[in-house]
Design a protein around this nucleic acid. Structure first.
Length: 118
DNA sequence: AAACTGACTGATC
DNA sequence: AGATCAGCCAGTT
């Protein structure tokens, strides 16, 4: 990858569209933005995102449904709080996949749907 | 310039 | 389920 500037902006653009109450894995976000294999760089793009963009960074999680920060870490608590405040249950650092209906993956599922809920 | 680092993933045991 | 390991890839040492 040559220019990370374009990468960052592509990530920010897609991240901004993640609906409230839903989540998406880093790798999936990267793929949707056109950069498959760039999961690790997504975290960096989010970290450096301009504050005025007000991106829903908390809706971006690690697979399979796990908050990337270490449990107990301030950032972990912050993300957990934001998710819970919009109806996403978090148990032991994990998103409660049950709430989306394990069987009814179709429409009530988080953004990445099929892939995320394999 | 080689080594190390991490808000990642997938395979294996 | 939980731990480990190896790929991953740009940034930082």
């Amino acid at each position: 990858m040559a220019d990370m500037k374009a990468f960052d902006e592509a990530i920010w653009r897609v991240a901004a569209t993640i609906p409230e109450g839903r989540v998406i894995p880093y790798g999936e976000l990267a793929r949707l933005a056109g950069y498959p294999g760039y999961a690790r760089q997504v975290s960096k793009a989010l970290a450096k995102a301009p504050k005025n963009l007000d991106l829903p960074w908390h809706r971006v999680i690690a697979k399979p449904g796990r908050i990337a920060f270490a449990i107990g870490e301030p950032a972990f608590e912050r993300q957990k709080g934001l998710l819970q405040s919009e109806g996403v249950a978090v148990l032991k650092g994990r998103i409660d996949l049950q709430q989306f209906g394990w069987s009814g993956v179709s429409d009530a599922s988080p953004l990445p749907a099929e892939e995320f809920f394999r």
